[in-house]
Design a protein around this nucleic acid. Structure first.
Lengths: 198, 198
DNA sequence: GTGCGACTGGGACGCTTGTCCCACTCCCTC
DNA sequence: GAGGGAGTGGGACAAGCGTCCCAGTCGCAC
């Protein structure tokens, strides 16, 4: 085994843990399973992390920090705000379909964090990040179409997060593409009515 | 310890398990924790159930079967479909606020069921039940206001389930009542536009 | 090149988990 | 009221868990 500085091991272990959680769920993410996925020994784990809890905390913080703008509305002349929002939500849905395990893992990590008071802030940070990303998209979409949000964008963003979250869970359960698209349409419809058109 | 027939023990254990899951999460619902909650011995558990898996399966089936119409729209003259839907969703939200742990438990049971192929149908049944209940409310609401759903009610119901689910998760994370109400308004708005008004 | 600290491997620990066994006791039936 | 099956209690088991220890080894700084 090559020698790897502790900092790099931490990152490698976090990556391995995310793969395990995505593939088999957080309950299966034992120290041994993570270490096997990363191809190292148990001792290396506890050299890099004081405890499994510390790893999970860092895992959550990492995936939140890594969360990217899933969708950037593409400027296409002649499209209404509603159309822009709908295609944005559908683009998120495509992203979900391309890697359902990842979104399921994110959901599981949220639930996990919600279960202990000291970890609750991690879940809150996760959703604050979602809202921030949603807000970016919403502001850009308004800008591109010349619309103006009637209520504070942060509030609209929170609604968008709720809608996409609902779309995610229901689709993960029933894998009904048409149903998910109906949700996307309805969501885009509701959101677009929260703005004044030019 | 009084003698209790196995069938009653099963029910008592399922109830105890639901309390444990609600209070501490599914990960904490060990055979010993459940048995302690029910006030019986470990042997009684395995006399009533062949395995913990069997108990969890029955728990999920039970909570799904037990799920009631959370909200029955109240006939009140002069209210629009939109208003009726909004007050219905808000009534669900009040229900959520009155017992957040229960809804969190339902969410956890869904995730749990999603993680193994043989349990996936349990999650699907859970959401089918949700959709059925949503459908009842939607049909009644349309009837009361004389509106007519433009798309199949089942599809509208699925959208409603997605919206309430999103409302639930986001509120469980940030406990933002005003945000949840904004979701309720937007959802009611979107849904009401899926019907033709009289 | 040597020394020292950063890193590794394997084994072991104590604990909790699900499950099982077996001796026992109650209650219903004939 | 005797017999037998249904139900009970406590202890035990193996397996898996998180964590720890310690002897060893590598590689960089001097």
């Amino acid at each position: 085994m090559p020698r790897i500085p502790a900092a790099e091991r931490r990152a490698a272990l976090v990556d391995a843990a995310l793969r395990v959680v995505s593939r088999e769920g957080i309950a299966a993410a034992t120290t041994r399973a993570i270490v096997a996925e990363a191809g190292m020994s148990l001792a290396s784990f506890h050299y890099a992390f004081a405890s499994r809890d510390e790893l999970v905390d860092e895992l959550i913080a990492t995936v939140v920090a890594r969360e990217q703008q899933a969708v950037v509305p593409t400027p296409e002349p002649g499209r209404s705000l509603r159309e822009l929002l709908e295609s944005g939500i559908i683009a998120y849905f495509e992203h979900l379909k391309s890697d359902p395990d990842h979104e399921q893992a994110m959901l599981e990590l949220t639930q996990y964090a919600l279960r202990s008071p000291e970890r609750h802030p991690l879940a809150a940070a996760q959703y604050a990040r979602y809202a921030e990303l949603a807000r970016n998209s919403l502001e850009l979409a308004a800008e591109l179409t010349g619309a103006r949000w009637r209520t504070p964008v942060a509030e609209v963003a929170r609604v968008l997060v709720a809608f996409t979250d609902g779309l995610t869970i229901t689709w993960l359960v029933d894998r009904d593409d048409a149903g998910a698209l109906a949700v996307a349409r309805a969501a885009a419809d509701a959101l677009s009515r929260m703005a004044d058109l030019p």
